[in-house]
């Protein structure tokens, strides 16, 4: 039982497995364990912690982008011409 990651999953709507796959559980626990719910959500969704993006990974793994199904700008390009295709349906 990991209280921080369970709470994060409940707040964000992403599974524990999805959260672990970001590689950010440990750094986020160090930053945000015990913080207000709103701050925990903002950190997971946008990578911003109290006005700062702590590192590139925090931005690249932002859950707001994952919710939409696109990579954050400047991180993982979808490939030449892919933008012409109908967006993939969300799960």
């Amino acid at each position: 039982m990991d209280a921080f990651v369970e709470l994060s999953a409940e707040l964000t709507g992403f599974s524990v497995e999805e959260l672990r796959s970001t590689g950010l559980v440990e750094p986020y626990r160090a930053l945000a364990d015990g913080a207000p719910d709103e701050e925990i959500i903002q950190l997971w969704y946008t990578g911003v912690w109290r006005g700062v993006i702590p590192d590139e990974r925090a931005y690249a793994e932002g859950l707001a982008w994952k919710a939409v199904g696109v990579a954050p700008p400047g991180t993982r390009p979808p490939g030449f011409g892919s933008w012409e295709q109908r967006p993939r349906p969300r799960r």
Binding site: E10, L11, T12, G13, F14, D37, I41, Y45, L63, A64, A67, V68, G69, P87, R90
Partner: peptide, 15 residues
């Protein structure tokens, strides 16, 4: 909004 409802709302809006 929290949890699944938040995730759905962001997805529906931004897409």
């Amino acid at each position: 909004l929290r949890g699944r409802a938040l995730r759905e709302a962001v997805a529906e809006r931004v897409s």
